[in-house]
Design a protein around this nucleic acid. Sequence first.
DNA 1: TGTACATCAGTGAACGCGCGTTCACTGATGTAC
DNA 2: TGTACATCAGTGAACGCGCGTTCACTGATGTAC
Lengths: 185, 185
Amino acid sequence: MRYQKTHKDDTRRRVLEVASRNFRQNGLVGTGVATIMADAGLTNGAFFTHFRSKEALIEEVFESASDIGYQGLVEAGTAGGIEAIVRRYMRPEHRDHPERGCPAAALGPEVARHSPATRAAFTRKFQRMVDLINSHLPSPNESRAQAIFGTLIGAMQLARSVSDPALSDQLLNSGIEAGIVLARA
Amino acid sequence: MRYQKTHKDDTRRRVLEVASRNFRQNGLVGTGVATIMADAGLTNGAFFTHFRSKEALIEEVFESASDIGYQGLVEAGTAGGIEAIVRRYMRPEHRDHPERGCPAAALGPEVARHSPATRAAFTRKFQRMVDLINSHLPSPNESRAQAIFGTLIGAMQLARSVSDPALSDQLLNSGIEAGIVLARA
DNA sequence: TGTACATCAGTGAACGCGCGTTCACTGATGTAC
DNA sequence: TGTACATCAGTGAACGCGCGTTCACTGATGTAC
């Protein structure tokens, strides 16, 4: 072999990370295979030695792309409970950098249009997030944890969509308040 | 003139309605001009006698497409207050027919990627919805109304994205419960 | 009343471009002898 | 140790296709005389 044993796996992982970032930035339909490969330092042809198709890549992104944002939320929860999780999620930095943030907030409606396999992978990530929230509720309540996640996603999307910066900041705060109310009620 | 005076305006309105439906169904990037025109019973060339560009169409859709879903929520609010609004929004029919439903739930993250003019038009529709919710709160509270709207959007998107139908139904209920809690707290 | 011309919403072919995907090829390295 | 061959990740041109957009044209009707 003319490459290290780990070389192909390394490349594959790199493509997954780049794809995950680009998808969150420009959408699933808005991101092309050639762009992903160029950003990973390769040419388009190599893509299909790693993945069967673009749809297969999308599925794998939801299954396995490493999730720095999620780790930060785990740490916030350990340090400051549910309120810290909510505050961390609703940070201006998160609003301003969807490419490093929550896939549900960046891609929600697009996931709904994709294959069952992709939606199943998304569901697993969703459940992990609900479990994290639930584990920090004063009295655990799956339904409530789901709703809190929904509130975070919705408020974050609105903060990103609205054209008035002051209103956008206010939406982040509205999301924080509501998240805390829901956690306590 | 070989057409009625109203003819061109009628066509224009029809294209806007078809576009609005198709956008919510397949996304802004996922919907082509030729498809919209074919669904409106015309050929692609006619598009540019009505709109400067696809981006201009998108902007106008957010500005002016008639909103049957919104009217239904107004009536629900009049009849049954905030709880009826929340229940109506979170209906399974809404989840299963994004093409007839809330643009924010169907297109949120895509709007965030579009032109300032499009986002400004979106902001106006957003504000109208927040006002409706706020007018039915026991004690009016803009921030709370914003958060309730966020909760509805987020919960609806999750219900549409998740692959397990039972979980999807549960998410609709979680959204209803949370909406009511937020309205009362 | 009948003919010539102006109007203009809509037609449909064509434009360059980027998409996802295929494929013959390259070239660096490891293995066999 | 030196040469011939096998391996295979990656290259880059090419495929058909649909995209947004342009444009010369059509044809039904209204107006002028």
